[in-house]
């Protein structure tokens, strides 16, 4: 029985054709390589450097890049900037990824429910999405992070809580258009449960847009974490993150510009890479490109 349904499904969201299209997308490849290198550096880097990211040495403060073994210089407490950059990368990338997973999960759930069920439930859910979207996201993030005790987990939750709406909208639209397709009708006639149809039949077909949106959400989550931590509301010291490394760097802009330039460059590289990948996926999966 399921075989019939399976046959009547659309193609899988990922197949050799999309794979080929993605691989021939140069930017996406570059993005993949950059993210791989960055992740590797953040994972292995701290083991290769002679300094600990938390070790304070006031005598060595404000050393410019390439002072001795401080390849990227030191910060105002004399901590090795390279070591901190890699440790910060772990945190920032982890927060970005986790926030993406969480917000995609919430967004997908809400979107599928609203799109498939429709009716008053759908309307309520989508009005709530509209309501959340009418807020400046920075307001919600700042307000929530002020209300909750800041920790990497909390920041992840806060960022996720304020970035799921986009996914919800995309999924809802997609599901609504898939709802009346033959394979769904067939499933319904076969007496499959609503949950089964929603998550086993419809969702796989809406995977393309979700994947693209998720990739772009990582990029946005990294930027958001950076800004919130830059303002001092995010990741707390001594734990480094790319954002909180920039906090205070403004003060030393004239005397120690590398403190501002290096972490910012890391953020830009990471975010650019995810945007490249997202762009590649969009082309490969043939998703309408309307959310930048």
């Amino acid at each position: 029985m399921t075989a019939i349904v399976a046959n009547s499904r659309q193609e899988r969201w990922w197949n050799s054709r999309t794979a080929h299209r993605f691989m021939s997308h140069h930017l996406a490849l570059i993005g993949m390589v950059m993210i791989a290198v960055l992740t590797l550096a953040c994972v292995l880097g701290p083991y290769l450097l002679p300094y600990d990211s938390l070790h304070i040495d006031l005598r060595a403060r404000f050393a410019p890049p390439f002072t001795g073994h401080h390849y990227l210089g030191t910060d105002p407490l004399g901590r090795d900037l390279a070591a901190r950059l890699f440790m910060a990368g772990r945190i920032s990338l982890l927060v970005g990824f986790s926030a993406m997973l969480l917000s995609t999960l919430i967004g997908t759930l809400v979107g599928v429910l609203a799109g498939y069920r429709g009716g008053w439930l759908g309307t309520t859910l989508m009005r709530t999405v509209d309501g959340f979207l009418s807020f400046p996201s920075i307001f919600l993030v700042l307000a929530l992070s002020a209300a909750l005790k800041p920790s990497p987990m909390m920041i992840t939750v806060v960022i996720a809580a304020t970035s799921w709406m986009e996914v919800a909208r995309i999924v809802e639209a997609e599901v609504r258009s898939l709802r009346e397709r033959e394979f769904v009708q067939a499933g319904r006639m076969l007496g499959l449960s609503g949950t089964h149809i929603m998550f086993r039949e419809i969702l796989p077909n809406a995977m393309g847009p979700i994947i693209v949106a998720a990739t772009l959400t990582v990029a946005r989550a990294i930027l958001m974490e950076a800004y919130v931590s830059f303002l001092g509301y995010g990741i707390q010291p001594p734990l480094p993150s790319w954002g909180n490394m920039l906090n205070g760097a403004q003060q030393y802009l004239g005397t120690a510009p590398w403190l501002a330039i290096i972490p910012g460059a890391a953020i830009t590289i990471a975010v650019t890479s995810f945007n490249f990948i997202g762009d590649g996926l969009r082309d490969a999966l043939d998703v309408r490109g309307d959310h930048t």
Binding site: P76, L142, P150, L231, Q236, N247
Partner: peptide, 30 residues
């Protein structure tokens, strides 16, 4: 939160306090 010099003092003290067996965590607020 965001008072950069105080955050440096906190991290500096955190390190010296650890040397006498005292744990100080940092939890700043707006």
């Amino acid at each position: 939160a965001g008072n950069n010099l105080r955050e440096q003092v906190q991290q500096f003290l955190q390190q010296t306090f650890a040397e006498i067996g005292v744990e100080m965590t940092i939890s700043n607020l707006p």
